[in-house]
Amino acid sequence: MKRKATDSDTNSKAKRQREPEADYCDVIPRKDGKGNALWPASEQSIERARSFLKECAASQSKTLIVPDKDADGLDAGVIIYKTLIALGLSPDLLDVHLINKNVSVHDEMERAAMLAKNPKCIIVVDQGSRAAPPVVDSVDTKSLIIDHHLSDEFPENAIVRYSLSKIKPTN
């Protein structure tokens, strides 16, 4: 059966064009004192993240990966997972926690769910870049935030893959 042609003047509404949002890749990168772009992160931040991952693997302790559920978050989570195994962490000690829909990693329900897994190391990937309480309320748990979103604020007591807040951009 063929569809009937509709009168385009009566049934169509003009759609409002949304203003495109600036892509994080379009942001002018911060620079060190020598004018070198700090991308993807400062050497100090990369070294802190590297040390954190090595320490988690060497500890042979429960480690929790908390990736964002989008493509880059899940991909980064898999890379972290495989890196920890390559560094010698037993796969039995690795767990993944996916945040529920419409809440953030900072939500009290999510923080309690992560704490209930009793991790010694938590790696939050592609989320968490805002001021907040510690990722979980445990002095025995260390947290690493890995994110490509530029921020100067992070959860308390977290190690951050890029902490550019102390480096002023040069013009």
Score class of each variant (00 low, 15 high):
I80L: 14
H106I: 04
F52G: 10
A22L: 10
S165P: 05
D32K: 00
R3M: 07
T170F: 08
N11P: 03
A132Y: 02
F154Y: 11
E153M: 08
K2P: 04
D72G: 05
K15N: 10
P29W: 07
H149D: 00
S8T: 15
E156P: 06
M114C: 00
P169H: 05
A37T: 11
V105E: 00
R50H: 10
A22P: 12
I123N: 01
A76T: 13
F52E: 02
C121I: 02
H149N: 00
V96G: 07
L89D: 03
C56K: 01
W39G: 15
K101V: 08
A71K: 09
S45C: 14
K2F: 03
V66I: 12
W39K: 12
F52P: 15
I145T: 03
V66G: 05
A131D: 09
H106M: 06
R3C: 06
D152L: 04
S51Q: 15
I123Q: 02
K117Q: 08
C56H: 01
E153N: 11
K34D: 14
S163L: 04
I79F: 09
W39H: 09
L93K: 14
I123M: 12
K4V: 04
D9I: 05
H149T: 01
R111H: 02
S163C: 06
I46R: 12
L64M: 08
I65D: 05
K15S: 13
S143T: 15
R111N: 01
V125F: 00
I65M: 03
S163E: 12
Y81H: 14
R130T: 06
N157F: 13
D9M: 08
L38Y: 00
E108L: 07
G33A: 13
E110Y: 02
K4Q: 03
S45T: 12
K117S: 07
I122C: 04
R50G: 01
I146H: 00
K120H: 12
S163D: 15
P91C: 15
A131E: 12
